[in-house]
Design a protein around this nucleic acid. Structure first.
Lengths: 134, 134
DNA sequence: ATATGAGGTTCCCATTATAGGAAGGTCAAG
DNA sequence: CTTGACCTTCCTATAATGGGAACCTCATAT
């Protein structure tokens, strides 16, 4: 017969940890899979496919609620690509904003660090900046 | 006499929320301030200065444990700037790595989005990528 | 037969930094 | 003496993930 795909199998083929698979089920991101008599979960090809979709979306940094939306659009044959694109563009903006923030911090620190001797003396523009700057 | 600086005053002058000031105290990042008879906290100039230091470090994205370390170095007149610089350089590397990750995601998505019509048709390279890509 | 090990199950706790809110005490002003 | 604006502590939540306990199930090795 069809070999039973356990949660570990699903995890290994999709790259989503078993812990996370159960979690996604508990928050309703994926529907509860079939169970064997002993209550073990087993996953259909469809389930596996869905988990793969989720992992790829996670790899692109989409938050869970976006993924929930993307999954609904994925299932909906009559979706409009505009809706998908809108989600992606919003996410791109969020990513860019975060990246810009991090870079600004990094740049400030790089500037300060470049003026720090980094020797045994206590004088340090980095500490000074934390001390003084508004 | 010296006017009592309440937690709200401290919050307003340092930009650290009262909630966070109490939290920093509870995790031992700052020491417990003096209390009036009615158990209200009040803050010395030194306390305020320390909270300002913490806020600036947070603005630069330093995690709490780094700040703990930086505060200790700040107080230590015989610190070596090398130690400060080392913390900063490690943090810069962490910031840069995170920024690079976000940018990679953004770039991938921008590429996909640029090929997405964004109209009423269902065809969508973004969904396709989540569907197919490994 | 049974012991062992590898897997499954549920449930609870921890992380990081921050915020919201409840329940109650205190204080100044009207 | 009430009202409102503070203060106090304690609990809960966030987003995504991992760790671990306590317990069940199953296949294999003795």
């Amino acid at each position: 017969m069809t070999e039973l795909v356990t949660i570990r199998d699903a995890s290994m083929t999709t790259g989503v940890s078993a812990k996370m698979i159960r979690h996604y089920e508990s928050i309703g991101l994926i529907s509860a899979p079939a169970r064997t008599e002993n209550r073990y979960r087993h996953y259909s090809k469809r389930d596996i496919h869905e988990l793969g979709f989720i992992r790829k979306a996670r790899d692109l940094g989409f938050p869970i609620e976006d993924i929930r939306h993307l999954l609904a659009l994925w299932r909906d044959r009559s979706r409009s690509s505009a809706e998908v694109k809108a989600i992606a563009l919003r996410h791109i903006a969020a990513l860019d904003e975060k990246a810009a923030n991090l870079q600004a911090m990094s740049q400030t620190l790089k500037h300060l660090a470049s003026h720090c001797h980094g020797d045994n003396r206590p004088d340090c523009p980095i500490i000074d900046a934390l001390d003084r700057l508004g």
